[in-house]
Design a protein around this nucleic acid. Structure first.
Length: 252
DNA sequence: CACCAGGCCGTGC
DNA sequence: GCACGGCATGGT
């Protein structure tokens, strides 16, 4: 049995690989097709790590609830959201794709990349392509797949994939330095990669939603009010706002 | 038609 | 250092 909020965890904007299929959630991870639902027993070691099963979210959430009433409401409404341990390369490409884009279209491009360059591990189910599988891809080819102006950014990431994948053991801002050498990776994309792949729960990605939240709800304070779990707090606020619960604050 | 979406780059000051 | 326009595409 799943004892946290699987729906909100998989569809709060941190990952782009999960789809609904009958009563299951489905994704291709670790070269396998995973199908899970709220009644699943998670015993697969990859999934235990991916879903961050062993971290004590209940205690942590009880702590950060005290920080602020709006954050408290977000946690009460969204229940227990886990920050996933996602594949580094996949996360890099997905969040390069995310810039000036929307989640539905990011998911569409994700599927296209898998279908075009990935490996079919089960009929109709493709892996997300490793950098080696995209070594000879041209910018025009990517533009034909509708990635738009992000095409050269992806090429740059592919060409520097050896360097990029060395950051998986790095602490904090070291990783930022390397990541932001890539064209198309700035502070926000870099923060998402650190939060969703390197699991730094204190980094605070500032997208258009979070900027709006900080300005209108927290009246210009910065993320230090959520330390040392700013990233986790951020994910609740982002999702809560996108669900429409903060609309009254945004009426100006 | 306009404006927006999990931004960033290049240019100009 | 900061402000600004441009950027591909699809949705509202």
């Amino acid at each position: 049995m799943i004892n946290f909020d699987l729906e909100n965890t998989l569809f709060c904007g941190q990952s782009f690989c999960w789809r609904r299929e009958d009563e299951n959630y489905v994704a291709v991870l670790n070269n396998k097709v995973y199908r899970i639902n709220n009644n699943s027993d998670i015993t697969d070691p990859y999934l235990i790590n991916y879903l961050d099963i062993n971290f004590n979210y209940k205690e942590t959430l009880n702590t950060i609830k005290e920080m602020n009433p709006v954050l408290n409401q977000a946690i009460e409404t969204c229940n227990e959201i886990h920050i996933l341990n996602q594949d580094l390369w996949e996360t890099i490409i997905c969040f390069i794709l995310s810039q000036n884009n929307n989640i539905k279209r990011i998911e569409g491009i994700y599927d296209t990349l898998c279908k075009t360059y990935g490996v079919e591990v089960e009929k109709g189910y493709f892996t997300f392509p490793r950098p080696e599988m995209m070594k000879n891809v041209s910018e025009k080819e990517l533009r034909d797949l509708k990635v738009g102006f992000r095409a050269p950014y992806i090429i740059d990431a592919i060409n520097n994939s050896d360097l990029l994948l060395t950051i998986d053991t790095m602490e904090g801002e070291e990783a930022d330095i390397i990541l932001q050498k890539i064209k198309g990776i700035g502070p926000k994309v870099s923060a998402c990669i650190r939060l969703f792949a390197l699991h730094d729960l204190n980094v605070f990605p500032k997208d258009v939603w979070v900027k709006k939240i900080m300005k209108n709800v927290f009246e210009g304070s910065d993320e230090s009010i959520f330390y040392p779990y700013a990233g986790l707090a951020q994910q609740y606020l982002f999702h809560y706002a996108r669900l429409g619960y903060l609309d009254e604050y945004f009426k100006n």
